[in-house]
Simulated assay, not measured.
Amino acid sequence: MPRFSANLSMLFSELPLLERFRAAKQAGFAAVEIQFPYALTAESIQQTLQAHDLKLVLFNVAADDLLQGGEGLAAVPEKQDRFKVAVAQALAYAKVLKPDCINVLPGRCLNAGRLAEYEKTFRHNLRYAADVFAEIGVTTVFEAINSRDMPGFIVDGSAKMLSIWHELNHPQLRLQYDIYHMSRMGEDCAAFLSQHIDKIAHIQFADCPGRGQPGSGTLDFAALFGLIAALPYDGWVGAEYKPGPCTADGLAWMKTPRASEAAAL
């Protein structure tokens, strides 16, 4: 059955970050993920995880100004030294927190004339990160983000993800597949999961088009969760959506037999 993790950067955001761990445990999650954990010390996160018997399965390498509308870090040629510093920071956190995966966000190119240069830089930096994290047994992942929400994102579809993955051919590099982002791009998520599950180390989801909880949009999550359960996939499935004012009130999707059984694993 799928194993569900709560993305604490989005879920339970009505609470301070350290209080979200307890809320996730009380809601039935066995694992959590954080987009960028660096506002807290790794030690304080680890203590909180232990206090609530939770596993942290994923976090991102710092992405500079990406969420503020900038180009980010991993693809910008002039920021390669800063990217290495961010990888070192993520490595230090990983040594304490022992995640399954660390995500490298490709970022944007806001000057179309430099796109090829940015793509080359990203491939170089992604290989560098995969080499570093492989030393401690952590899988590096990267994801595509839809270019409607984030114009200029250099990896905005499944075909681009696959091309990079095949080109790098790194034993510790896998895909992070986001059902919401690929649905926004009009892709057939069920078909991709069925064909490429062996390349995926982490899955995330939100409903489409509003990025809300399952049931708020058009996606058939009963079918998608059922498919994931039937596939040879042992990674986590991260709830990374925009909840209502009270996250706990929007967790009916976990009450289905499949979901509630998976969350308890």
Results as ranks from 00 to 15, higher is better:
Y177Q: 07
F142A: 06
Q172T: 12
R174Y: 11
G157L: 07
D178I: 00
I154R: 01
M161D: 07
A144E: 12
G152P: 00
H196P: 06
I179E: 03
H170Y: 03
W165Y: 08
H202Y: 10
L193M: 09
F192A: 12
M182D: 07
A206L: 01
Q172Y: 11
P151D: 00
G186Q: 02
P171M: 04
M161L: 13
V141F: 10
F142M: 05
Q204W: 02
P151A: 01
I154Q: 02
L168C: 04
D178G: 06
Q204A: 05
R184T: 03
K199P: 09
Q204F: 03
E187T: 11
L193V: 05
F192Q: 14
F153M: 04
I203R: 08
W165G: 05
A201C: 10
R184C: 09
I179S: 04
H196R: 07
H202D: 14
G186V: 05
E167T: 15
G152H: 00
Q195L: 09
H170V: 04
W165T: 08
S163K: 08
Y180P: 02
I197S: 05
M161W: 03
F153I: 01
I154K: 00
D188S: 03
G152V: 00
Q195T: 12
G186I: 07
D198N: 12
M182L: 15
V141A: 12
L175G: 03
H170P: 05
A190E: 11
L162K: 11
D198Q: 12
L162H: 08
L193Y: 11
A191D: 13
L173I: 01
G157Q: 13
E187D: 10
L173C: 06
D149I: 00
W165Q: 10
A190C: 03
F192I: 15
R148N: 13
I203L: 12
A144S: 15
D188G: 02
I200M: 10
I164K: 08
I200K: 09
Q195N: 12
L162I: 15
Q176M: 12
Y180N: 05
H166M: 11
H181G: 00
R174I: 07
Q172V: 08
S183F: 07
H170D: 06
Y180F: 12
G157N: 15
F192T: 15
S147Y: 00
M150I: 10
D198F: 06
V141S: 14
C189D: 13
I154M: 02
S183K: 09
Q172P: 02
G186D: 02
M182T: 08
